[in-house]
């Protein structure tokens, strides 16, 4: 994996690590507490203590929520595409949902629901589904009029129209949408897990904060970033495979 990274990326990471290490040496002489900028060795110790179960739990929450968000988002987009009246009613609601800050959703979730898992999935879905809806609808509108006319001339059922034309045609846009919402979901899940969860990366970050362990925060954050990059790499591979007709 590392060998596949561009040389410039590796160099910039190494430079950052060296600068961090220098800062951790200099911190006490600059009046900064030593724990605030731990050395790479201390961070490595924290990384060694990472619990895979918490990573798996967070990953599971993200993937489940994204799948649910995608299904809901796509169905709503299809309804909005099929009916102008539905679109007129739903578009303002979708826009409002997108304008509400994540923190507000977390507070609503805490006040409305008892189950921690449901709260987290709720927050992720309510944040990600509108993104899928807007992206899918925009992509549907951009499908070539010529292709729509061609398939309509063969008189498809509404299901066939979406299945044979619209879904394959919007697949490139859907994959881009997944890349965006994946990054969004990883950031949102962490905040959602800070409130009430007893597992997951967000919970571990909360524990690290209570223990004033910057090394642990750094280690868990690093795990999150790597997790995001790995998932994005998977999506890119999927994209290459699914969209090979474009090569």
């Amino acid at each position: 994996m590392i060998s596949s990274l561009p040389r410039e990326t590796i160099i910039s990471i190494v430079l950052f690590a060296v600068a961090w290490q220098i800062m951790s040496y200099l911190a006490p002489s600059l009046g900064i507490p030593a724990f605030a900028i731990p050395g790479l060795g201390r961070i490595a110790q924290s990384l060694a203590k990472i619990t895979p179960l918490d990573v798996a739990v967070t990953l599971g929450r993200v993937l489940l929520s994204l799948v649910v968000s995608f299904v809901i988002g796509l169905l709503v987009a299809m309804l909005m595409y099929l009916s102008e009246s539905i679109e007129k009613y739903l578009r303002p609601m979708v826009r409002i949902l997108m304008a509400v800050p994540v923190v507000s959703w977390i507070l609503f979730a805490v006040l409305w629901f008892k189950g921690v898992e449901f709260r987290i999935v709720f927050v992720l879905v309510v944040v990600c589904a509108p993104v899928f809806t807007v992206d899918a609808l925009d992509n549907m509108r951009e499908v070539s009029r010529d292709l729509k006319q061609m398939i309509r001339s063969f008189r498809p059922t509404p299901f066939q129209f979406f299945h044979k034309l619209m879904l394959p045609a919007i697949t490139p846009g859907i994959i881009t949408s997944w890349k965006i919402t994946l990054s969004l979901a990883i950031r949102v899940v962490t905040i959602a897990e800070l409130v009430g969860a007893v597992t997951g990366i967000g919970h571990q970050l909360s524990v690290a904060q209570e223990l004033f362990s910057v090394a642990d925060v750094f280690a868990w954050t690093l795990v999150l970033v790597v997790l995001l990059f790995l998932l994005e790499a998977l999506l890119v591979r999927l994209e290459t495979r699914v969209l090979r007709w474009r090569a």
Partner: peptide
């Protein structure tokens, strides 16, 4: 019962 041939081929590029 009706089939069409358009000016452009209008093939699905993913098929």
């Amino acid at each position: 019962k009706i089939a069409t041939i358009f000016q452009q081929d209008r093939l699905f590029p993913w098929r």
